[in-house]
């Protein structure tokens, strides 16, 4: 299993008391899996994504990514583990505004300190059709180009798991299709994709769709 979440529970301190975000949730992703997570706002989709990304430790239950329990690692080791095994894609792209496309894609190499990343970055940029935008900053790119840049960044360190939070939310159909295509390709190449989305079209692109309600899996299709 690339991702194995078992009986995870996570609460937040809200204004009106404790809020249960994830309640005894279990989910597994194997190599080649492309799983979409859907549900109403506040059902715990984003929390699930953070749990699966090694960014948010559950209060109970366990999380295993690529055979490793990230929350048992030190903070620095977990950061490095994340850099090597997990890629993130967000709805708002979250590119570093003052870096060029090439530098944004290369940013994860700071964490790993790996040499030879530039060659792979250029290959990814070429693969995502951004070669003509190499030196451009995010502000000079279209939404589709920004998301493709974010995808390239997420894939730089050849992660085993790709976590996408509404990656098509700000894209037109054409660009959304393009992004979903790349996610599919990633899964097909042996990775695992966990896609959080409201978009039915995007969910339809997944192999499996998990519906969340009040922090629990409601249905899995």
């Amino acid at each position: 299993m690339l991702v194995e979440i078992q009986d995870a529970r996570k609460t937040y301190q809200g204004a009106s008391g404790q809020v249960l975000a994830v309640d005894g949730l279990s989910l597994s992703l194997d190599a080649g899996d492309f799983v979409a997570v859907q549900g109403p706002s506040g059902c715990g989709k984003s929390t699930l994504l953070l749990l699966a990304g090694g960014l948010l430790a559950p209060e109970s239950g366990s999380v295993q990514i690529a055979g490793e329990k990230p929350y048992e690692l030190s903070a620095d080791a977990r950061s490095k583990f994340r850099a090597q095994n997990v890629g993130f894609v967000f709805q708002q792209f979250h590119l570093v505004p003052y870096l060029s496309v090439l530098d944004n894609v290369l940013a994860p190499s700071i964490a790993t300190g790996s040499t030879g990343s530039e060659q792979r970055a250029r290959e990814l940029i070429d693969r995502f059709g951004l070669s003509h935008r190499l030196a451009h900053t995010p502000g000079e790119l279209s939404s589709g180009e920004r998301q493709r840049t974010a995808l390239a960044r997420a894939m730089l360190n050849q992660p085993k798991v790709l976590l996408a939070d509404e990656p098509t939310g700000n894209l037109d159909t054409e660009n959304a299709t393009e992004v979903l295509k790349h996610l599919r390709e990633f899964a097909s190449s042996g990775g695992a994709v966990l896609l959080v989305t409201h978009d039915a079209q995007a969910a339809a692109a997944a192999d499996r769709v998990v519906h969340l309600r009040e922090g629990k899996i409601d249905t899995a299709v």
Binding site: G53, L55, A75, D76, S79, K80, R82, A83, Q84, G87, F88, F90, H94, V96, P97, A107, P108, I110, A111, T112, R153, A154, N157
Partner: peptide, 16 residues
């Protein structure tokens, strides 16, 4: 803050 969050998410350590 947002940039720091992303950099941490993609693997930069707190020391970095």
């Amino acid at each position: 803050f947002s940039e720091i969050g992303i950099l941490r998410a993609i693997g930069l350590s707190s020391n970095q």
